[in-house]
């Protein structure tokens, strides 16, 4: 019989650790009422578009109607709102459910734990959102003969940019879920107040908004007016370049994941439903 130390595997590192953290993300995050609610939220524009088709009012344009739905419904409201729940649940559920000891007690680097949970949330968001967008594209474009194939490259660009927005939003809300006790409320405030209000003021604040950069990228990629950053142009400001928007979204991801890893390192678990940040000296 070997010693316990010889039987015990070394602490997992690298991709294996990220994957283990990803797989350990509570399976309950996308079940039950929460899943139904998210599906209803993401599927709402599809129902609207279907109704318009039935009543004969959705055939007037092809790609433009798709772009309008993506810009006004998904990027401004649905994607951030669904990620409020998915992102904050990546870790927040552990403290509320009293399972944080199974996260903080494992010999895995906090950075890799954050990356694993981040990937799990991103995957869930992509699985929820991208199929809905594909169906929306089909509903908007298919009635026009030949349009389905014609606009496919533009549609692919839109889907890719929505995926980028999902990457950025997930990082922000994962951090909020770790950092704050009332993380969902705080995430709502971020979406509704910051993104919804400040982000749409005729000022440079818009450039701090994820949805602004996502729409800017779509405008650059498709040249569709639905994504045009009108307010900035009306103020005589040049909309950011593709590079600036891409870098900004990447900065959102890197900064908020780094903050999340730092927060997790300082995080304590002092019993069911309680969470505190460590405060040496207190």
């Amino acid at each position: 019989m070997g010693t316990a130390a010889s039987r015990r595997p070394a602490p997992t590192t690298g991709w294996a650790a990220v994957r283990a953290a990803d797989l350990s993300c509570s399976a309950g995050a996308l079940r039950g009422k929460r899943l139904l609610g998210l599906c209803a939220l993401v599927g709402l524009p599809l129902v609207v578009q279907l109704a318009l088709l039935v009543w004969g009012e959705g055939r007037g344009s092809a790609f433009a109607s798709f772009a309008t739905r993506v810009s006004n419904a998904y990027l401004r409201v649905i994607v951030p709102l669904s990620l409020v729940f998915l992102g904050t649940a990546a870790f927040g559920d552990e403290w509320e459910g009293g399972t944080a000891n199974y996260v903080l007690g494992v010999p895995v680097s906090r950075t890799l734990l954050v990356l694993g949970r981040y990937l799990a949330s991103v995957r869930r968001a992509l699985l929820l959102t991208l199929p809905a967008l594909a169906v929306l594209y089909a509903l908007c474009v298919a009635p026009h003969e030949g349009a389905l194939a014609h606009y496919l490259p533009d549609a692919a660009a839109v889907l890719a940019i929505v995926a980028l927005a999902i990457l950025a939003y997930t990082a922000v809300f994962l951090f909020l879920g770790l950092w704050l006790r009332r993380s969902i409320m705080s995430a709502f405030i971020y979406v509704l107040v910051f993104e919804g209000l400040i982000g749409n003021l005729p000022s440079g604040f818009a450039t701090l908004s994820i949805s602004f950069h996502a729409r800017n990228l779509m405008w650059r990629a498709t040249d569709d007016q639905a994504f045009r950053p009108e307010l900035m142009q009306e103020m005589g400001l040049d909309p950011p370049s593709v590079t600036v928007s891409l870098v900004t979204l990447a900065v959102f991801v890197v900064v908020f994941l780094a903050l999340s890893a730092r927060t997790l390192r300082r995080k304590e678990f002092t019993g069911g439903g309680q969470q505190v940040d460590s405060a040496p000296g207190t």
Partner: peptide, 26 residues
């Protein structure tokens, strides 16, 4: 732990397998 927190949606096998992976088992 003295708490009752478990991943209620998971089977016992899945819960322990996840934990084993996090502890370095392939």
């Amino acid at each position: 732990s003295d708490g009752d927190g478990l991943y209620e949606e998971l089977t016992a096998r899945r819960f322990l397998t996840d934990q084993a992976r996090l502890r370095g088992f392939s």
